[in-house]
Write a protein that binds this DNA or RNA. Structure first.
Length: 431
DNA sequence: TCTGGGGTCCTAGGACCC
DNA sequence: TCTGGGGTCCTAGGACCC
């Protein structure tokens, strides 16, 4: 048996915790660069603002709705997420942190009323950190996800589902006729694993609800679609096909990419940008104990602007797998020099670290080992300094030293304070 | 004027091997 | 006139997730 705990409108809820006046207001959290909506409060959803909708459209469409927009503050969301996951870990013996706002728990061996247990957990998270959640319970992860969807919908729109499911829904506790009624009331697009493409294909076959999907024959699904969709169907039928991953495997690739605040044409700022991306990715690489064998560097113009478009990527092998920021930055710069073209209005660039290998399985090489060790100590020192004094306290000079030189920097004009991760941003309580 | 970022898995097809 | 069978590895692209 599995449970899925999911923070409601997570980024918006994190902002509301520290600015309670936003409660009841249509609130949007903007993507990096303040480009589009990546989180919406219930009120913003009710207005009809779509996930991923560009903000200029939102402003044009709802000039008088009192919509509040804040820039994404990932330091805050990450910290609140850690706290939420720590509390939710008490739900069962094993936990899989699936994303910043969701975790699966195994409920194997838990006795007593699982719905009651989930309700108490929901109350605890709400009281301790102020984040509202929905909790779904089911015999497979896909069914727990579905139950979670029901729990959230029932809470937001009373009457959308038959029965009492607001905030917590336990599918396993349901008689089969109620279970089928619930599937019948669920659009197949809500099923975990069915996206827009497959969804449209299924509709083309005359299927519309989760009940229609659960009745499909898995062997036929595999023949006509894929083993992936077959697994989804079997999971809906109650047969577990997707295991809980309580110890996530190390990442196989690490990316750092950004849109720019303004178009960039000169080589120098492009070099700065990818240098910084390489340094950020390098820190992630070291924190999971890996080295990268290859790096992909790319840059392109805006796909939304008329005019000449340009897009280029190059994959470079490191001379040997490395996690040193110095190697990574040099490689990123080499890549950028290869793909850069004068006169092009670049709007986005990025790097990806590929061919990741564990630190331990480095091939020895004559005369270089002392070098590599020194580099390892240097990187540990750099990471420790940045952890203590803030990101970018010490960095490679080619990433741009002065703020005015960093013309590729993204826009974040409505960013809220780092309430929980910077001393100077600590909220002050007044009597 | 203004449109995010970071991942995973699967499949098909090409290149190559014996 | 006639041209096998079985396998691996790599890559690009599609689809999905949050």
């Amino acid at each position: 048996m599995y449970a899925l705990v999911d923070g409601n409108n997570f980024y918006s809820s994190c902002e509301i915790v520290f600015r309670p006046s936003l409660l009841g207001v249509p609130l949007i959290v903007a993507s990096n660069n303040d480009g589009c909506a990546i989180s919406r409060s219930d009120e913003a959803k009710s207005l009809g603002i779509k996930m991923g909708q560009p903000l200029f459209e939102v402003r044009r469409q709802f000039p008088d709705a009192g919509v509040v927009i804040v820039s994404a503050n990932f330091a805050l969301y990450g910290d609140i997420s850690n706290r939420m996951m720590g509390i939710a870990a008490g739900l069962g013996p094993q936990q899989e942190i699936y994303s910043i706002d969701e975790c699966f728990s195994s409920l194997a061996g838990m006795s007593g009323d699982l719905s009651q247990r989930a309700r108490r957990m929901r109350e605890r998270i709400l009281q301790w950190i102020g984040i509202p959640t929905g909790i779904g319970i089911g015999p497979t992860k896909t069914l727990a996800k579905l139950a979670n969807h029901v729990a959230k919908s029932a809470a937001r729109k009373p009457g959308s589902y038959p029965g009492e499911f607001a905030h917590v829904c336990n599918l396993a506790a349901l008689p089969s006729s109620d279970f089928e009624a619930l599937l019948d009331a669920t659009d197949l697009g809500e099923i975990w694993g069915i996206g827009p493409r497959i969804g449209a294909q299924l509709r083309g076959e005359g299927l519309n609800t989760a009940l229609d999907v659960v009745r499909m024959d898995p062997a036929m699904v595999r023949r006509r679609w894929s083993v992936v969709l077959e697994r989804t169907v079997r999971e809906l039928q109650g047969q577990p096909c997707i295991a809980l991953e309580d110890a996530p495997p190390p990442k196989r690739e690490i990316a750092c990419t950004r849109s720019f605040g303004h178009p960039v044409t000169a080589l120098e700022p492009m070099l700065q940008a990818v240098s910084e991306f390489a340094a950020l990715a390098g820190k992630k690489l070291r924190s999971q104990g890996s080295r990268a064998g290859q790096m992909l560097v790319f840059a392109h113009t805006s796909p939304f602007r008329p005019g000449r478009s340009y897009s280029k990527a190059v994959t470079l092998a490191l001379r040997r797998p490395s996690s040193s920021t110095l190697d990574l930055v040099a490689t990123a710069a080499r890549g950028m020099r290869t793909i850069y073209r004068p006169g092009v209005q670049f709007m986005k660039a990025g790097i990806m670290l590929l061919d990741l290998v564990p630190e331990g399985c480095q091939q020895g090489e004559l005369a270089l080992d002392s070098d590599a060790q020194a580099s390892g100590r240097l990187m540990s020192a750099v990471d420790a300094i940045n952890d203590r004094y803030g990101r970018g306290a010490i960095r490679v000079a080619s990433a741009g030293v002065q703020a005015r030189v960093r013309e590729w920097e993204m826009r974040q004009e409505m960013r809220t304070p780092d309430y929980t991760t910077r001393w100077k941003d600590l909220p002050v309580a007044r009597a």
